[in-house]
Amino acid sequence: MQNNIQRYKCTSCNKTFSLTKKLNPIKIWQDYTEGKQSYKQLAEKYHCAVRTIQRYLLKSPKTP
């Protein structure tokens, strides 16, 4: 980790990269509740795992 940014390495081409785009828990919550999207749909939309979506929904602020 350099400058507190985690780096990843592609196993195919050995290039390294970092992910700088953070997911927005509020936007995920809105897509889930108002957009009626499933965990799987959200995971595909945000290019992450279903478990990541579950974690973000658990920690997102809930609006009444």
Rank of each mutant, 00 (worst) to 15 (best):
38 S>E: 04
19 L>G: 04
19 L>V: 14
50 V>K: 11
13 C>I: 01
28 I>L: 12
5 I>L: 05
37 Q>D: 02
62 K>M: 10
56 Y>S: 01
41 Q>P: 03
4 N>V: 08
6 Q>T: 05
54 Q>N: 09
48 C>D: 13
8 Y>G: 02
6 Q>P: 07
38 S>N: 05
26 I>H: 04
26 I>W: 03
30 Q>S: 12
19 L>P: 00
32 Y>R: 12
17 F>Y: 14
12 S>F: 14
17 F>G: 00
31 D>I: 07
20 T>W: 02
3 N>T: 11
21 K>E: 15
5 I>W: 07
22 K>R: 14
8 Y>L: 10
31 D>H: 12
48 C>F: 12
30 Q>D: 13
11 T>S: 12
55 R>K: 15
31 D>S: 05
26 I>C: 04
49 A>M: 14
10 C>L: 07
10 C>W: 07
10 C>D: 03
11 T>W: 04
42 L>M: 11
35 G>T: 11
9 K>F: 11
9 K>G: 06
12 S>L: 13
51 R>S: 14
16 T>K: 06
1 M>P: 00
63 T>E: 12
60 S>G: 11
10 C>K: 07
52 T>V: 14
63 T>A: 04
30 Q>N: 09
50 V>M: 07
28 I>G: 09
60 S>M: 11
29 W>L: 08
22 K>Y: 06
8 Y>R: 09
3 N>A: 05
46 Y>I: 03
21 K>D: 13
